[in-house]
């Protein structure tokens, strides 16, 4: 048995991997949902192949953190030319591990998001928000404090900042709003918390099942229900004191051998057709000014944006997580 396995393994290992390559290949690492059936990957790949005379190869690996870790594990052996899917909270880690290089593109005039970086291109953005069912909640909260200190015994579900990006976003949001008073805020929130889940899917599932009154998601989540099911009952609670912003970014890897092509692709990300793909399939806002689908005008939009710089996130993230752990475990 073992011998056979060894032989098979050996034979597989010496199989030459040489394939006929007439066109250059641009390899993109992204999260798995980018290249899935409902992701924006396919259309973007086709669109770029039409104009680059190259082959685009998308490798979908888990989530944003997995992309970063795969790149760290591969080091200089990586085949990736582009990484697409980190958010602004992971940028510092990527820069620190020296995984990316400057894209040398100039900031477009029609940029809709107030963020520009030498290494990373912002390709879409959104705001974290709590979603509720307007059939059950008639007087939604108008600030984060309203939600946390509500008198209605509303049950809240959010994601674990240690295991999920929205969870981390919420941790930052809370720290932005409460600053030095964060300990008390976490403890008060704990009283109204139904549970804290590993990822977004579990939390949103609990909410749809009617177990929770509010779920941490994105302010654009209601558009998905409108577009998919023509369902208008779900709404995002818009807070006067603002919502934490998440910007999704792409960059050229440090070890790419296709610099010109990679640069061309990054510029391509900021063209209207591609931006439409992100709006329709990532359910996020475009990073340049384009016309949005009708559903986007039917939802309440965020009026005030909150964020930390990438360096602040890198510096405080760990201690804030410990603080959260200790406060909510009491």
């Amino acid at each position: 048995m073992f011998r056979h396995l060894l032989i098979i393994g050996f034979m597989l290992a010496i199989t030459p991997l040489a394939m006929a390559k007439d066109k250059p290949v641009l390899t993109i690492y992204s999260y798995s949902s980018f290249q899935s059936k409902w992701g924006a990957g396919d259309e973007i790949k086709q669109g770029f192949e039409e104009q680059c005379d190259c082959t685009v190869k998308i490798v979908g690996v888990g989530d944003a953190v997995t992309i970063l870790n795969r790149l760290r594990l591969e080091g200089s052996n990586t085949k990736a030319d582009i990484i697409l899917g980190l958010d602004t909270n992971l940028i510092s880690a990527a820069k620190k591990a020296r995984l990316v290089q400057p894209h040398q593109l100039t900031k477009p005039a029609d940029l809709a998001v107030n963020w520009w970086d030498d290494d990373f291109i912002p390709y879409d953005y959104g705001y974290f928000a709590f979603i509720y069912n307007q059939n059950n909640i008639t007087n939604p909260p108008t600030s984060l404090d309203d939600l946390i200190h509500n008198q209605h015994n509303w049950k809240i579900v959010y994601q674990d900042p240690r295991t999920s990006s929205p969870g981390l976003g919420f941790l930052l949001w809370m720290n932005k709003v409460y600053g030095a008073k964060i300990d008390q805020a976490w403890q008060d929130l704990a009283k109204n918390t139904l549970t804290v889940t590993k990822g977004w899917s579990e939390a949103y599932g609990l909410f749809l099942k009617g177990e929770a009154d509010f779920v941490l998601s994105y302010s654009t989540s209601p558009t998905v229900h409108i577009i998919n099911d023509n369902d208008y009952q779900y709404k995002a609670a818009i807070f006067q004191d603002g919502h934490y912003q998440q910007i999704e970014v792409a960059a050229m890897t440090r070890y790419t051998k296709q610099q010109a092509l990679a640069q061309q692709f990054l510029a391509f990300l900021l063209t209207p057709n591609v931006q439409h793909q992100f709006v329709e399939k990532n359910y996020m806002y475009p990073s340049i000014k384009i016309d949005l689908p009708k559903a986007y005008s039917e939802i309440d939009s965020v009026t005030h944006s909150l964020s930390f710089t990438a360096d602040e996130v890198e510096k405080y993230q760990k201690s804030w997580i410990t603080q959260w752990q200790n406060s909510v475990s009491q």
Binding site: R162, T195, T197, L206, V328
Partner: peptide
């Protein structure tokens, strides 16, 4: 465990 725990107080070493 994480989903049903209700709080990070109840979690496993795997997390």
């Amino acid at each position: 465990v994480l989903t049903l725990s209700g709080s990070p107080k109840y979690t496993t070493i795997e997390v």
